[in-house]
């Protein structure tokens, strides 16, 4: 009985300490993040701060294709449609800071409303005043046509890896997956202020909640960051983060399996050692 009381005291003290250095410290140190998440209701896949697509506006993919040819391909490639980039990636990175993305599948990962707003005013949509793409002076109709066209050619049901390759690796490397950022580090440093972090174990460094909020609205979580809002839709973002978790923690399943076996083994040990203790101590008193 006395032994159990002592154990109870130890358990209570350890739990108080644990509560203090984990949940309590976390809630105080990450207060600004929690507050931002609450304030903007992150992740906000409705992109509430952006203008709604005017009602009654219908996109026409055919007209969109023409608009893309007029407005986009002086910088972007659309490889799927046989349109190559007008200049080599290195030269593009030198002029813009980053390599402009290929537009083949971009419509498959970005939210429709976001993309509409982005085409009208890239700086506002990305919340990054230094964003390389200029506003093109598109009309609402032209913008919605381009959205419809990009959606129509994009690959459907992309995997998490594909989403990350489309959405992230223009700037971010993923060293442990042997993925090198498309844009060279020195031009990105000039453009963004620093070389964007490697994503190999970023899931462990930042955690799921943070990533969901940050990717959705970077400026709310880390004001002044060079990371633009990229406007992933809900499905794409969830897949991307699931992929980031998978590559950061590839042995999750094995860990659970081995863990259960080890704990079961130790339970047997507890039983055996208790029986032996009883046997030895029986003759003592």
């Amino acid at each position: 009985m006395k032994e159990l009381k002592i154990l109870a005291v130890i358990v209570v003290l350890v739990l108080i300490g644990y509560w203090g250095i984990e949940p309590l410290a976390h809630s105080i140190m990450h207060k600004h993040i929690e507050e931002a998440i609450k304030k903007y209701n992150l992740p906000d896949f409705k992109f509430s701060d952006l203008d709604p697509i005017p009602s009654g506006l219908q996109g026409n993919p055919q007209a969109g294709k023409e608009a893309v040819k007029t407005f986009c391909i002086s910088c972007h490639s659309v490889k799927k449609e046989g349109i190559n980039a007008p200049m080599p990636p290195q030269a593009a990175a030198q002029s813009f800071g980053v390599v402009p993305p290929d537009l083949s599948n971009i419509g498959g990962i970005l939210d429709e409303k976001y993309l509409f707003n982005f085409l009208k005013n890239p700086q506002k949509a990305t919340e990054n005043p230094k964003f390389a793409m200029p506003a093109l002076g598109l009309s609402d109709q032209q913008a919605i046509d381009i959205v419809a066209y990009l959606k129509s050619i994009a690959k459907k049901n992309m995997s998490g890896k594909e989403v990350v390759e489309e959405g992230c690796v223009r700037c971010h490397s993923i060293k442990y997956q042997k993925i090198q950022a498309l844009s060279p580090p020195d031009t990105m440093k000039k453009y963004l202020g620093k070389v964007p972090p490697d994503l190999s174990v970023i899931y462990k460094a930042k955690g799921e909640e943070y990533l969901h909020a940050f990717i959705n609205k970077p400026q709310a979580i880390l004001p002044g960051t060079g990371m633009p809002r990229v406007g992933l839709d809900k499905e794409a973002q969830e897949k991307a983060i699931a992929y980031l978790e998978e590559i950061a923690d590839p042995h999750k399943e094995q860990r659970t399996k081995v863990g259960i076996i080890v704990l079961a083994y130790l339970l047997v040990m507890v039983g055996l050692t208790y029986a032996w203790k009883r046997k030895i101590w029986k003759n003592l008193h």
Binding site: R255, T256, V258, G259, V262, L263, L266, L267, M269, V270, L272, T273, Y274, W276, K277, K279, I280, W281, L284
Partner: peptide, 25 residues
């Protein structure tokens, strides 16, 4: 030995159960 250690092995097993719970989970 063996009386104190008999109890000690029991304490160690319980401790290891807790320890490996932390390691894996």
């Amino acid at each position: 030995w063996p009386v104190f250690m008999a109890k000690e092995y029991f304490v160690m097993s319980v401790f290891l159960l807790f320890f490996f719970y932390l390691v894996f989970f």
